[in-house]
């Protein structure tokens, strides 16, 4: 704006800008109010509660709540179940993550390898199905599959002479079963995203590499993988943030058992919430939130740098 603008026109411009601002905020009001009341507020309240001894019985009478400093956090560190939950969550993420992305990438590459459109669409539809079905429906189906006697899995193993374990009731197989189920359920998402990215890689790049004498593996490593980098980063961040919060699978299939072997961090928090230990659950939530944000930021940093 030049300095020579007459005063009345400048005032009109300001008035216009204010009016525009007002209208913009009117449009986004539903989101802003909801965010403040149901997300930002609860997030801050949760962090605040974590420094108190608040219990469900205190909701009616907030004055009865005492500030206890970092006691809840100290208690967390010495809580065997919470430590087990943390370990289980880490194991779950570091195994389910490569499985789901690897399967998604394999499916996407096969679907992009020049097969006809119609069968490709059919396979894509099938692979994506577990992703959109209710976790309860799926958990029930898998409990039935893994049932020690009547379950299909153990009956198939019987055919080849193997006595299958009681998958969900044994400490050593319960978590791996849930990990396999999760990879089975979620790889379709990565497949769809990776397939869309694969289809944007120009064919000429592959032809040029072939002319240069690159074999199939070399073409995959030097053309496909670099081109997919940003999308693989997205899949990794998205999936690990989701997996860090896994809760419904063990809740429905094992309730965290046997002997806490499938207890996840989120499920442990949910259980504390259920028995009314709001302050303690708030502390565990705050730790989980911090770890998830830190992990996502770290992944984005590392992924962008290289």
């Amino acid at each position: 704006m030049s300095l020579a603008v007459p005063a009345h026109r400048a005032r009109a411009a300001v008035r216009f800008a204010v009016r525009r601002s007002w209208i913009g905020w009117m449009f986004i009001l539903p989101f802003v109010v909801l965010f403040a009341v149901f997300y930002l507020g609860p997030l801050l309240v949760g962090i605040g509660m974590s420094f108190t001894d608040m219990r469900s019985t205190d909701v009616a009478d907030p004055l009865a709540v005492d500030v206890v400093g970092v006691d809840n956090y100290l208690r967390l560190m010495n809580d065997g179940a919470m430590r087990r939950a943390a370990v289980n969550t880490v194991v779950f993420v570091v195994t389910a993550l490569p499985l789901t992305i690897g399967l998604g990438l394999a499916a996407a590459v096969l679907l992009n390898s020049g097969i006809a459109r119609l069968p490709a669409a059919f396979f894509r539809l099938g692979y994506y199905l577990p992703n959109i079905t209710s976790i309860i429906g799926i958990a029930v189906a898998w409990k039935f599959l893994l049932e020690p006697e009547a379950g299909l899995v153990n009956r198939l193993l019987e055919l080849v002479g193997i006595q299958g374990p009681n998958w969900l009731q044994s400490e050593s197989t319960a978590l791996p079963s849930i990990i396999v189920m999760t990879a089975w359920r979620s790889f379709g998402f990565n497949m769809v995203v990776l397939l869309a990215a694969l289809q944007t890689i120009p064919k000429e790049l592959y032809e040029a590499a072939e002319v240069d004498g690159a074999g199939r593996w070399a073409r995959f490593r030097s053309v496909t993988v670099p081109a997919l980098r940003p999308v693989l980063l997205f899949c990794t961040v998205y999936s690990s943030v989701g997996f860090m919060q896994f809760l419904e699978e063990p809740l429905v299939m094992t309730r965290g058992g046997p002997l806490n072997s499938t207890l996840s961090a989120s499920l442990a928090i949910f259980n504390q919430f259920g028995v009314g230990n709001y302050g303690y659950a708030g502390a565990a939530s705050t730790v989980l939130f911090t770890v998830i944000v830190a992990l996502a930021v770290l992944q984005l940093r590392l992924g962008r740098r290289r």
């Binding site: 989101f31 009341v37 949760g46 943030v241 989120s266 939530s285 989980l288 939130f289």
Partner: peptide, 22 residues
């Protein structure tokens, strides 16, 4: 804020949300 909300885990806000709803 839209992106922040995407990043807030459900379990972290669930309890205070429930207290609010109550």
């Amino acid at each position: 804020l839209v992106l922040v909300q995407l990043a807030i885990p459900a379990i972290v806000v669930m309890m205070p949300q429930f207290v609010l709803i109550a």
